[in-house]
């Protein structure tokens, strides 16, 4: 089996994330890392490989992003994927989800004969959860997305999906685009052995021209949506904090709620 796992490099969510003057996300001033939610995708890709018992199964980590984004691929290699592909090109800077999904879809085609594209449920910066269905749309593949449980038997995949109104079981025949939630189970840490082994694993870098994507189709200037303004929300003004003593806390809180007309 041939598995591609899409990993995004994102600004650390626990750091002070900001916008640049051109309203793109500051990806320089803030430390970047492999999007936490894509670790679950890597984990599931590896588990699928391990369960398949097929020696020939190969997992490729694919990342679209600037030079430094290769760290996300390296982390995936350390966790155990077999090879890495990093698509990096000046022209891609500032791309929206529409353009990013185009580059990802073309890269998947270039990797070739892919049975399974595995994605995270959302990137921790953009958090749109649209790239996986967009890749499916572009590749004309079924999407089995937001999976909390995954079962694969031969070329049949079944997932559990916690929908808004119902929990559903979704079924499809490979090849498919799969996205997984953080309910699928903790991701493994790279072992010392994994970190050493990663250094010898193949890691290719593609430019847009390698994928046959025209530079005019991607990037900030051709994005189909534009940010007009970004404003940092003023920090919430410190509220009143009381310490509960013999029930005084409940009374004070009830007073507050009444003053706000909640009771």
């Amino acid at each position: 089996m041939n598995i591609v796992v899409c990993v995004k490099h994102v600004p650390d969510a626990t750091a002070d994330r900001r916008f640049e003057d051109d309203a793109t996300v500051d990806r320089v001033g803030v430390d970047g890392l492999l999007s936490e939610l894509d670790e679950y995708a890597v984990e599931q890709a590896l588990q699928i490989k391990e369960k398949s018992g097929d020696e020939g199964t190969e997992v490729t980590a694919l990342c679209v992003g600037p030079e430094g984004a290769v760290d996300a691929v390296r982390k995936a290699l350390q966790m155990g994927v077999d090879k890495g592909v990093h698509v990096s090109d000046e022209a891609i800077a500032g791309s929206d989800a529409i353009a990013t999904s185009l580059v990802l879809a073309e890269a998947v085609k270039k990797i070739g004969d892919v049975d399974l594209v595995v994605c995270g449920m959302a990137s921790t910066d953009a958090s749109m959860s649209v790239v996986p269905p967009m890749i499916a749309e572009r590749l004309g593949l079924p999407q089995v997305t937001l999976a909390s449980v995954i079962e694969l038997q031969g070329d049949q995949i079944r997932i559990k999906r916690d929908g808004d109104a119902a929990t559903e079981v979704i079924g499809a025949t490979l090849p498919v685009v799969l996205s997984v939630t953080d309910q699928t189970g903790e991701a493994r840490y790279p072992s010392f052995k994994g970190i050493m082994a990663a250094k010898k694993k193949p890691l290719e870098t593609y430019a847009l021209s390698d994928l046959g994507v025209e530079a005019e189709k991607v990037g900030l200037s051709v994005a189909w949506s534009a940010v007009e303004e970004t404003t940092e929300r003023p920090p919430r003004t410190a509220g009143e904090i009381v310490t509960d003593e013999d029930g005084s806390g409940a009374t004070a809180l009830a007073e507050f709620l009444a003053s706000k007309k909640f009771i």
């Binding site: 919430r236 410190a238 904090i241 009381v242 806390g249 409940a250 809180l253």
Partner: peptide, 23 residues
């Protein structure tokens, strides 16, 4: 507590039942 408009430092097991009664 950095976010709140109003906060109570206390044990929820005693504060909440008392608050529920009050409400």
């Amino acid at each position: 507590f950095e976010l709140v408009d109003f906060g109570v430092v206390g044990d929820l097991h005693s504060v909440l039942p008392a608050l529920t009664d009050e409400v």
